[in-house]
Simulated scan of single mutants.
Amino acid sequence: MSSMNVKTPDILVSEVGPRDGLQSISQAMPTDAKLRWIAALAGAGLREIEVGSFVSPKLLPQMADAAEVVAGAIKISDLTVLALVPNLKGAERAIAAGVHKLTMPVSASRQHSLANIGKTPEEAIAEVAKVRTLVDTLPQDQRPALEVGISTAFGCTMEGPVPEDRVIEMAELLAKAGADSVGLSDTTGYANPAQVKRLFKRLFAGIGAKAGGAHLHNTRGQGLANVVAALDAGVTTFDSSQGGLGGCPYAPGATGNIVTEDLVFLLESMGLSTGIDIDRLIAARAIIQAALPGEPLYGHVPDAGLPKGFVPAALRSDA
């Protein structure tokens, strides 16, 4: 962990590049490079990393080594290892691999849900309940946490606007189905700050302590503005991808996930500690560049550098 961790960080930055980023690009990163990258991210102070997805290797060959990556990642101290699972079968494989946390995507858009996982939203919620039952059969100290992200919560490329009432109703149903936390995902990069603040406030009002984090995309340049809006609503966990890796299949040439380096700088510059050493974080980009030659990486902070005299939040007298 970073030496600047003098207290528990204010904000949890959950890195999703090794899963969301890598599964979105055609090149496959070698397993040993994935593990070096994950170790470098953890060394920079990342405390939570989504390292893979337990789906069919035929569908996502980039994730075929998920169990091997988990096996390596769980050896890193002070790191919570996440994996995405679309269904009960995936959860069984992830649990066998030893993950600390399962994350399940459940789409608020019926068309997106059917296209993405071949299930209706109602069937996806029922699948979460099945995974909860499975987790509860395990010894208490071996149960991974179960989080759900509501995909297309802010709009869908197929359906267009998604009713906010539907999103909150789904969150309440997922909480009852046994999710430990339910977050909101701007899968398509449609969200705006007013919408983000409003919907997260409703999420906290609806499910209280089970309200989870924000998974935001920068497809239309709104990513960091949406982070500030979510902060105003009380969100303390944010997903991001180093270098904005993966792009966005819905908008060619546009970045997809918000860039971890830019997110960390935003938070730290606002006086919110993340426990992450930005210089070491930026240095980890070299592993991606070597393993995925030619893959575009994004980020204003890596391009421009840190401002002269920049002091991390944990070391500031006004923090």
Rank of each mutant, 00 (worst) to 15 (best):
D165N: 09
T103W: 00
I76F: 03
L88H: 05
E122C: 09
A96C: 08
D165G: 10
A94H: 04
G90T: 03
E172C: 07
G118M: 14
L84E: 00
G118D: 15
E127I: 04
V69I: 11
V70Q: 02
P86S: 14
V167K: 06
N87W: 04
V85M: 01
L146D: 04
M158W: 03
A96W: 14
L134F: 13
E68D: 06
V81A: 03
R110P: 01
E169S: 09
V148E: 12
K101Y: 00
M158D: 03
K75T: 11
L88A: 07
V162A: 09
V131L: 00
L146V: 01
T120F: 08
A67Y: 03
E127S: 08
R166W: 07
E172Y: 03
V135W: 03
T133M: 02
T120Y: 08
A73P: 12
E147G: 02
G160K: 12
I95M: 07
A96L: 14
A115R: 11
T103E: 01
E147C: 04
S151G: 05
A67P: 06
V106H: 05
A83S: 06
A96P: 12
A108D: 09
V81T: 05
T80C: 14
M104F: 01
A171V: 08
L146C: 02
S107H: 11
E122Q: 09
E68P: 15
A91M: 01
P105E: 15
K130Y: 13
E172L: 03
E172D: 04
A71F: 13
R143H: 09
V131W: 00
E123N: 13
L84T: 01
A83T: 01
A153M: 13
